[in-house]
Nucleic acid binder design. Structure first.
Length: 636
DNA sequence: CAGCAGGGGGCGC
DNA sequence: CGCCCCCTGCTGT
């Protein structure tokens, strides 16, 4: 059954990793843990005397030899540790000796009803740690990982049966008696009997034993009906437990939390209810496309590249952005950015044994396939402009199109600006679009550059304790820290005397354990002495917190946004609006400036229907900021 | 301070 | 899926 890759063959690598793990584990858990837990091998694993913790099933230690060490950690807990902070030694001990609050940190809840076809409750959920613990072996991890683990290791599902009878998950088919074996993920290559309890095992096997693209195993995790069902089951459990928790907390200490914390709660809740959860990090989303895209960031291979400089990227749009920045003179061809796989992925001819086999009908999108030319000749003859689309593929429009079609930039400009000379256009190269500052002669390659540059004129980050204004959040943070010797809370105007006090404040006022935070920037964007929005880099809590805490500011932003005629503003955008609203207030005399920009010059242009992005930007308060400045500045 | 990369999300097709 | 916008972080000047 087991295809090659015995313990011996990976021993050396295992030992290499082992040292590293010992070191890490020593730091994390102390000496005992190293002695007991890691001694088994790469997996931070089962020790003696019934110490149960984070373990790879024995078979997987054989199969995972080509995984990077950090993946081993990630698989079972480091991601969780990174998310939740490093717990005290208890987490690797049997039964997870509680950390701080035994009532919350160690409360594992299982579903009331077992999952029918699985005859099991699969896993229990701990809302405090946001982790699942396998019902059968006490492995701990994020939802997706535990689902995969349970399915691959403990389920008695027979993949063949599932495939052949396909469609529904029927308890008869799933019955253990049908064929009863774990290692449910099977190699897609016809005739290869390799199976693993982990999709990753198959992935590694593909690369190692078939020298084929490991991505060919990705489908084992995607659209896998059993896995989907497990995931949904666990997600329901998670939602239920967290909802219960919310109710409990809501009745109790809610009053202690300010508006910011109150606003953060829904965000937390919705975050918990995401349909797709990354197994390697806390990321979760409801959108499949975003999730798929996100998965790329955990892959070794980056599927896209710049065909001129060969730099590799996770995303196509990043290639484009890169290209338009670095190779503005060259024509950008979307069809050349996808890296052709080193070896054509195995066609998986007979989808013999695996949980999921995509209908083979799925035609490999030939239009996206790019055969790298033997030499990376810089852009094949950009010659006569219009075409260049080899094979009739869609041609990326020249970067200038929009600007060209847009009405000629009018020199609107606020009369109060220092340099009223409409930004002198620097020499524009072919195909180049520039974003010019209205206050000086600066111009940048994109809107973001312009916005940040404008901060140097507007200095939107104002210190609440003195007159200091900064162009950047980090400068203000430094200022507050060095001059006033304070640490700013990212969620409210609170200024702490030291880190400990800040942590205390976060815990008490916002119910946030500081270990759960990314390193706080300690910056609060302040305008006119009033708290506007946190500068937390945390997209979820930070944004929501901002939305709530921004209070009047956010409200005003939303109003203005609505006034601008934006119909489709979404919650997320509103949060972003609130987060950025400080721009408006902080730019001195914002009221006039803002109104003028909106009512005066902006509206007529809107009627004229200029560059679409302008008006999408206008749809929320955040871009209002640069909506204002777009009116001052030329995009040409 | 600016350039660049990389991540998330919205939106239209 | 592609494009766009948003943000943050890193880095060089």
């Amino acid at each position: 059954m087991e295809g090659g890759g015995g313990v011996g063959s990976v021993a050396s690598l295992t030992m290499d990793c082992e040292d590293m793990f010992k070191e890490i584990t020593k730091k994390l858990y102390g000496e005992e843990a190293v002695g007991v837990g890691v001694g088994v091998g790469v997996g931070v694993g089962v020790g003696v005397g019934g110490v149960v913790g984070v373990e790879f099933p024995a078979a997987e230690r054989d199969l995972d030899d080509d995984l990077r060490p950090e993946e081993h950690i990630t698989a079972w807990g480091l991601a969780a540790l990174m998310q939740n902070g490093f717990p005290p030694p208890g987490i690797l001990q049997a039964n997870f000796t509680p950390r701080i609050d035994t009532s919350a940190e160690d409360r594992w809840s299982a579903a009331e009803e077992p999952l029918a076809w699985a005859h099991s409750r699969v896993a229990a959920y701990n809302p405090a740690q946001r982790l699942f613990k396998c019902a059968d072996c006490e492995c701990v991890g994020f939802l997706a990982r535990i689902a995969e683990h349970w399915l691959g290791t403990h389920s008695q599902v027979c993949a063949r049966y599932m495939l052949e009878h396909s469609a529904t998950i029927d308890r008869d088919y799933m019955d253990a008696s049908v064929c009863g074996q774990a290692r449910a993920f099977q190699c897609p290559v016809a005739g290869c009997g390799f199976a693993s309890g982990w999709a990753r095992g198959v992935r590694g096997h593909l690369a190692r034993d078939h020298h084929s693209d490991p991505a060919a195993a990705d489908h084992l995790l995607r659209d896998n009906p059993a896995l989907d069902d497990l995931t949904r089951y666990l997600q329901r459990l998670k939602n239920k437990v967290e909802a219960r928790n919310e109710r409990r907390n809501g009745g109790g200490g809610a009053e202690a939390a300010g508006a910011a914390a109150a606003a953060a709660v829904p965000a937390e809740t919705s975050e918990a209810g995401k349909r797709y959860a990354c197994a390697s990090c806390p990321y979760a989303t409801d959108r499949r496309d975003l999730f798929t895209r996100h998965e790329n960031i955990h892959r070794d291979e980056k599927p896209f590249h710049c065909y001129l400089c060969q730099k590799q990227f996770n995303r196509a749009d990043h290639v484009k952005k890169h290209f338009l920045r670095m190779h503005r003179d060259q024509p950008y061809d979307l069809n050349r950015i996808r890296r052709s796989p080193a070896k054509p992925p195995p066609p998986a001819p007979a989808p013999a044994l695996h949980y999921y086999s995509k209908p083979p009908a799925e035609p490999p999108p030939p239009t996206l396939e790019y055969r790298a030319p033997p030499t990376l000749a810089p852009a094949p003859a950009p010659a006569p402009a219009p075409a260049l689309a080899p094979g009739g593929v869609k041609l990326e429009r020249p970067p200038l199109t929009k600007a060209e079609t847009a009405p000629p930039p009018q020199p609107p400009h606020k009369p109060t600006t220092p340099h009223q000379t409409p930004a002198q256009a620097p020499v524009r190269r072919k195909g180049e679009r520039r974003y010019a500052c209205c206050y000086c002669t600066w111009s940048g390659v994109d809107n973001w550059c312009l916005k940040r540059h404008l901060n140097t004129h507007l200095k939107p980050f104002a210190c609440a304790l003195c007159e200091y204004k900064a162009a950047r959040a980090e400068r203000l943070a430094t200022h507050v820290h060095k001059v006033h010797n304070k640490k700013a809370c990212a969620k409210c105007p609170f200024l702490a005397d030291d880190q400990a006090q800040l942590a205390h404040h976060l815990r008490d006022a916002h119910h946030i354990e500081s270990r759960n935070l990314k390193v706080p920037t300690g910056v609060t964007r302040i305008s006119g002495g009033s708290f506007a929005a946190g500068a937390s880099s945390d997209g979820g809590a930070g944004g929501a917190g901002a939305a709530g805490a921004a209070g009047a500011g956010a409200g005003a932003g939303a109003e203005q946004s609505a006034g601008a005629g934006a119909g489709r503003r979404r919650e997320g955008r509103a949060a972003g609006a609130a987060r950025l609203f400080g721009y408006l207030e902080a730019s001195d005399g914002s009221g006039d400036e803002y109104e003028g920009a909106l009512g005066g010059e902006f509206a007529p242009q809107a009627a004229a229907g200029p560059a679409p992005q302008h008006y999408r930007d206008k749809e929320n308060a955040a871009p209002m900021h640069h909506a204002v400045h777009h009116e001052h500045c030329l995009r040409y």
